[in-house]
Simulated scan of single mutants.
Amino acid sequence: MKNNRLLFNGLLVFGWISILTSCTSNKNIPYFQDAGYTKQAQKVINSYQPVIQSDDILAISISSLNPEATVLFNTKATNSSTNTLDQRQIDGYLVDKNGFVDMPVIGLMKLGGLTSDAASNTIKAKLTNYLKEPSVSVRFLNFKVSVLGEVARPGVYPITSESVTLAEALGLAGDITIYGVRENVLLIREENGSRQFARINMNSSDVFATPYYYLHKGDVIYVEPNQRKYTSSESNKPYQILAVLIGFLNVAAIVALNKN
Rank of each mutant, 00 (worst) to 15 (best):
M1D: 11
K2Q: 13
N4V: 06
R5N: 05
L6N: 12
L6T: 13
F8V: 00
V13T: 12
F14A: 15
F14V: 07
W16K: 09
W16Y: 13
W16V: 14
I17E: 01
I17C: 11
C23F: 11
S25M: 10
N26Q: 15
N28M: 11
Y31M: 02
A35Q: 06
A35S: 05
Y37D: 04
Q40I: 14
A41C: 10
K43E: 15
N46S: 14
N46Q: 12
S47M: 01
P50A: 14
V51T: 15
I52W: 03
D55Q: 13
D56Y: 05
D56N: 11
D56E: 08
I57H: 06
I57K: 07
I57F: 04
I57G: 02
I57N: 03
I60T: 04
S61M: 01
S64K: 11
S64I: 01
L65H: 02
P67C: 10
P67Y: 02
V71E: 15
F73L: 10
N74R: 01
T75D: 11
T75P: 01
N79Y: 05
S81P: 08
T82F: 04
T82K: 07
N83K: 04
N83I: 02
T84G: 03
L85C: 03
Q89K: 13
I90H: 07
Y93K: 06
L94P: 00
D96M: 05
D96N: 15
V101S: 05
V101R: 09
M103D: 03
M103T: 09
V105F: 10
G107S: 10
M109R: 13
M109V: 15
L111E: 03
L111F: 01
A119M: 08
N121C: 01
T122G: 06
A125Y: 03
A125D: 14
K126Y: 04
N129W: 04
Y130W: 06
L131W: 02
L131P: 06
P134V: 11
V136H: 10
V136T: 10
R139K: 09
F143Y: 13
V145S: 10
S146L: 02
V147N: 13
L148E: 08
G149A: 12
G149I: 10
A152F: 06
A152Y: 09
Y157Q: 12
Y157K: 05
Y157F: 15
E162P: 05
E168L: 03
G174Y: 06
I176F: 06
Y179W: 07
V181G: 02
E183I: 05
V185E: 09
L186H: 15
L186Y: 10
I188S: 14
I188Y: 13
I188Q: 14
E191K: 07
E191I: 08
G193C: 03
R195I: 00
A198L: 05
M202Y: 01
N203P: 06
S204H: 00
S205N: 11
D206F: 13
F208R: 00
A209P: 03
Y213H: 11
Y214F: 15
K217L: 14
G218R: 01
Y222N: 04
E224R: 14
K229A: 15
Y230K: 14
S233V: 04
A243I: 02
G247A: 07
